[in-house]
Design a protein around this nucleic acid. Sequence first.
DNA 1: CATAAATTTATCGAAAAACGATAAATTTAT
DNA 2: ATAAATTTATCGTTTTTCGATAAATTTATG
Lengths: 70, 70
Amino acid sequence: MAIIVNLDVVMARKKISAGQLAELIDITPANLSILKNNKAKAIRFSTLEALCKVLECQPGDILEYVADED
Amino acid sequence: MAIIVNLDVVMARKKISAGQLAELIDITPANLSILKNNKAKAIRFSTLEALCKVLECQPGDILEYVADED
DNA sequence: CATAAATTTATCGAAAAACGATAAATTTAT
DNA sequence: ATAAATTTATCGTTTTTCGATAAATTTATG
């Protein structure tokens, strides 16, 4: 694991629930959950854009690179 | 347009060419060019990870959200 | 503690897009 | 001018998102 999705942090900052966020960025709660819990293997820029717009943040607030042993 | 790929900036900082970077992250120069020039519509975390590793940077250094009218 | 609400997990199928391979065109160096 | 590097373009394959849906699980709430 190396690219981490930190949506929880940004959501907490904005005080928004997963259900609300899913509705605002127009994806199903199921799919947002996958993204939010690091089960996704890629992300469309359209989705990242919607997240940044709604959460008023930058990609760097959501995505983090964590170096690991190898 | 809203999510911008700022690879040029990071590459300049690291003084690395597109050809070299493509080889290091193991994708074709053609595909790196697409990504680098904002022609891609998504990115795999495996690719973003490789970029961050080689360029010693964070996703936020590469991806930027630019708000526009709408 | 019971029940409702919210979230997560799991399938399935369809649509989208990455990516390799390749070649041609273009741009940039020398 | 010539070579090298980069970009653009196609095509086919593979990967992955994403919707739709339902079940399972977790988290509130009375």
